[in-house]
Amino acid sequence: MKPPPFTYHAPTTVEEAVDVLAEVGEDGKVLAGGQSLIPLLNFRLAAPEHLVDVNGIGALDRIALDDDVVRVSAGVRHARLERHQAVYAACPLLRQALVHVAHPVVRNRGTVCGSIAHADPAGELTAVLVLLDGTVHLAAQRAGQLARRDVPGSDFFRGVFEADVGADELVEAVTFPRLPARAGSAFVEVARRHGDYAVCGAGATVQLDERGRIAAARLAFISVGPVPVAVDLTELLAGAAPARVRLEAVAEQARAAVRPGSDLHASAEYRRHLAGVLAARALQEAVADARDRRDRRREP
C-alpha cells in the first residue's frame, strides 16, 4: 500500500530537529533510514502526523573513535559501520552482528541508531548495546534549550518496540565500548531464511586471562523475550580453560534465562532449545576470536 499523508520536516541541525520534535510532540516520529518505519507506514500500521527527517543533518553523519569508545551518530548507515576497518578492530561485535541485519541492500540505507531506537525484539543491535553496555545519547529541547541525556544500554529497552526515549527526543548517537585486550566476541543466529528476522540470536563476549583461561563471559539473546536477555556466565566459567568448559552447563543457563513466546515461525520450546545451542556456539566462537586477536597482536 501507500503511506498515509504526513507533514514533512527536514531540519539541517540537531537544534532544529529537537525544536520540531518539541512542537509536534506525540504526533511526530523521527525518520532516519526508514527501513523499519516506512514498511510500517506502507502497511498503515503507523500514521504519524509529522515526520522529522534527520537525513539532512550533516553533523549526524559521523563515526568517531577515541581511546575508550566507538561513537556512532544518527545518520550512520549499517553498511558504513560494517565496512569500517578501524571500528572492526576496536569493536568487532558490531560487524559480527551487522552482517545478520536484513540484507546488504537494506543495510545501505538503514541506520544503527534507528535500529536501536526501534527496539525490535529481533533487532541484532539491541543485543549488542546490552551486551557491551553501551550508551544511548538523547537530545531534546527543554525550556527552549538543547538538552542532552545519556541512558545506559542495559536500561534502554523497556518492552516490545518500547525504549527509554520520549516522543520529543532524538537518539543523537550511540557509543559502544572498545573490546579490551585478550577479549573476543561473536554473534550467531538462526533464521528461517537468510536475512529474515532471527528465530533466536546470541551475541557473546569473552575475556581471557594471561594464561588463556576464561576471566569473564557474557551472552545476550534476541527474539526470546520482549527485550534483549543478558546472561552473565562469569560465575559459571571463571578460571576455566576454554577446552574444559562444559557447554551443556552453558546451554542450561541460557535456556533457564530466556522467556520466549510462540508464533507462526517457531514454538517457545524450539526457541528455548535454540538459545542453548546458540549460547554454546557463540561462546566457542568468541573464545576463538579472542585467541585470533591475541595471536595477531603478537605478530611483529
Binding site: Y8, A10, G34, I38, N55, V105, V106, N108, R109
Partner: peptide, 17 residues
C-alpha cells in the same frame, strides 16, 4: 542505485533523497 549504492526505492521518500 542511490548515489551508487543499491537501495529499496519503496523504502525511501522521494523528498528525502
Amino acid at each position: 542505485l542511490l548515489d551508487g549504492e543499491p537501495v529499496r526505492s519503496c523504502l525511501a521518500f522521494a523528498v528525502s533523497v
